[in-house]
């Protein structure tokens, strides 16, 4: 049943249905991290898992994983820079890392946009970082295969 790159038709079909849910779940865990268990790191790992699933199911030429694989270093650096910028903007309020964004109503979404923005930055950083780790291991496997003459 294996026609084309990636895994069999069944796996690709199931992955196509699941991918969106996993993505949204990761985003949700990160965005609601200031209210519920979770946060940027956990959300980032879930998003990275979705990307890994995409690569496993569709191969390295198509799908969202393959699309983002090219930009993974840039995204990783951008997430870290966003976090650093948020900390640096704290100087507006007088101190490194100070919350300078007005706080909202407690226990509702958006009670603190500062933490939400930080969680988004961590989501991008961790998602890209964990995915980059996976890609590096895959690439290393290919190099070893080539060196030892395996197909």
């Amino acid at each position: 049943m294996n026609d084309g790159p990636g895994m069999s038709l069944i796996v690709r079909m199931v992955s196509r249905w699941l991918l969106g849910f996993v993505f949204v779940y990761g985003l949700g865990v990160a965005l609601f991290g200031h209210l519920t268990p979770g946060g940027g790191f956990v959300g980032g790992v879930v998003v990275a898992c979705a990307l890994v699933m995409s690569i496993l199911a569709f191969g390295g030429k198509q799908g969202p994983g393959a699309f983002l694989a090219r930009a993974v270093t840039t995204l990783d650096a951008a997430g870290a820079l966003m976090f650093l910028a948020l900390a640096l903007f704290g100087y507006v309020a007088g101190c490194f890392f100070t919350n300078w964004i007005a706080r909202g109503e407690p226990a509702t979404f958006g009670s603190t946009w500062f933490v939400i923005l930080m969680n988004v930055a961590i989501l991008v950083k961790v998602g890209a970082g964990a995915f980059a780790g996976f890609l590096a291991i895959v690439a290393f496997g290919h190099i070893l295969d080539a060196e030892e003459g395996r197909p």
């Binding site: 930009a71 270093t73 840039t74 990783d76 650096a77 951008a78 870290a80 820079l81 650093l84 640096l88």
Partner: peptide
Amino acid sequence: GAAFLSLLVKA
């Protein structure tokens, strides 16, 4: 900042 900007300009 320098470390992450270097990665950003890499591409």
